[in-house]
């Protein structure tokens, strides 16, 4: 099962850190909110190349609006440390 990046819309404030870190996956709408470039808007499939940047985004999101879901064992949705 592939990992997906889940955006909690009740928390996201469109601050745009994730869109900077994952420009290939996420664009930004006129109000600053992230928009998936393809596929589901809330659960975005992360390829291998984006895994590290996705972890960074989860760590740095100022509103703690991001987490990883899926991906099997070891994925608590929380990044290690910090």
């Amino acid at each position: 099962m592939s990992r997906t990046l889940h955006i909690d819309w009740t928390k996201c404030d469109g601050r745009g850190l994730c869109t900077e870190l994952l420009p290939g996956l996420l664009g930004r709408d006129d109000w600053g909110y992230p928009v998936a470039r393809r596929g589901d808007r809330t659960d975005i499939a992360i390829g291998r190349d984006d895994a590290e940047a996705a972890d960074e985004a989860i760590k740095l999101c100022p509103k703690l609006a991001l987490r990883v879901v899926g991906g099997g064992a070891g994925s608590s949705g929380r990044p290690a440390g910090c």
Partner: peptide, 18 residues
Amino acid sequence: LNRSGRRLLVLPRFSISL
């Protein structure tokens, strides 16, 4: 500055946060 959500010149938002 981080709270404003703005960049600073060439610095992206995540750099300001870090």
